[in-house]
Nucleic acid binder design. Structure first.
Lengths: 202, 202
DNA sequence: CCTACCGATCGGTAGG
DNA sequence: CCTACCGATCGGTAGG
């Protein structure tokens, strides 16, 4: 019984994530959501407390996924380049396996109201901070250029998040191929050059 | 008389852009907008036809600005690296001088309905295409690496658009400094290396 | 899970 | 630019 209810709740949340990603959270009504589930809007409330509860559970659930992934990377003592490549790989992995839920974490969280909004922003900032630590490690190891870390972090995150706008599971690239290309681009940039880093292998 | 009405209309549109950027288009009501203007919601309709007309005029106005800027760059025969740096500089310039209106072009256009939605998407694709042409030029000139052009275009555009999320005119960097840093990052990536391109000057 | 319904708010109009 | 108001739709509840 409890399992049936929980299962149904997850179905509703998944359907909501898909709808909210397509139309936006504010533009989606509970009646829209009910229709995709083949039920009346009022029936949704047997399983969920409110519209915002859905958004909340998705946003915080994904924040947990992203944070757990990057903390694992930072705990293991690879060098900075490996760390960054791993962090990007994990990020792409999460986005491509949960594209609808990821859209809530990346952009639809704006629909949250206080005090949940502030709580969520804290988690996002934490994730950003973990990325930044990797870049700082890289500079200390003399592997990365001495760049503006905040600037570089935001630029990298914007690139990895943009994937969610164009990725479709039937596309030509696998998640790992996407992660590889993105990492190469971030490491090496666009211009031709020879890398003289000791770790470089042609 | 006509000037007074037009001036008032522009004030409303500017206030709307600011409001829509902060709260999102769908989450903003005409009553919210009226309040920021110190008038009743119904009075807005003496100056504008509908809520969507506001969004439309901003989105298409900005599309025109961005397209004009990049077409100018592509018409002048600089080399590809110069073209890309110029295109990024213009893009940053437009965003930083019209941050509210730019937000409509970058994300709030989703609030448009057909047939305007499709028309707008065409213009966005055109802008993307112009960027892509620059990357193709760069490869032909043997200045850029042979990269997936669609992939690189989207990555670059995501980075330049993300500026709109964190840029404030009282920040530490000028628009040209932002453009320079971004261009350097895109050209050179994060890793240490020596550039052997003939055009390279240390 | 449904029918029936609530108060609030939405974009927008009429008429001055 | 305002008052007065419209039909539609919103998130959500009561009761079964």
């Amino acid at each position: 019984m409890a399992e049936i209810i929980r299962g149904r709740k997850e179905q509703i949340i998944d359907a909501a994530a898909k709808l909210f990603k397509e139309k936006g959270y504010n533009a989606s009504s509970m009646r829209d959501l009910a229709q995709t589930m083949g039920m009346e809007a009022s029936s949704l409330y047997s399983h969920i407390k409110s519209k915002e509860e859905i958004l909340e559970s998705i946003c915080f659930g994904m924040a947990d996924k992203f944070l757990t992934a990057i903390k694992e990377v930072n705990d293991i003592y690879f060098n900075a380049e490996e760390k960054l490549r791993m962090a990007i790989r994990n990020h792409v992995q999460i986005i491509t396996s949960h594209p609808d839920h990821s859209a809530m974490f990346i952009k639809e969280w704006r629909g949250l109201t206080e005090p949940k909004l502030s709580k969520f922003k804290e988690l996002r900032d934490k994730y950003e901070h973990e990325f930044r630590v990797i870049l700082e490690d890289g500079e200390n190891e003399d592997v990365f250029d001495r760049v503006d870390k905040k600037f570089a972090t935001l630029t990298i995150l914007s690139a990895v998040n943009w994937i969610n706008e164009w990725y479709h599971s039937d596309g030509a690239m696998t998640p790992d191929e996407i992660a590889k290309k993105l990492s190469d681009f971030i490491m090496g940039g666009l211009c031709k050059k020879f890398v003289t880093d000791p770790n470089y292998k042609p």
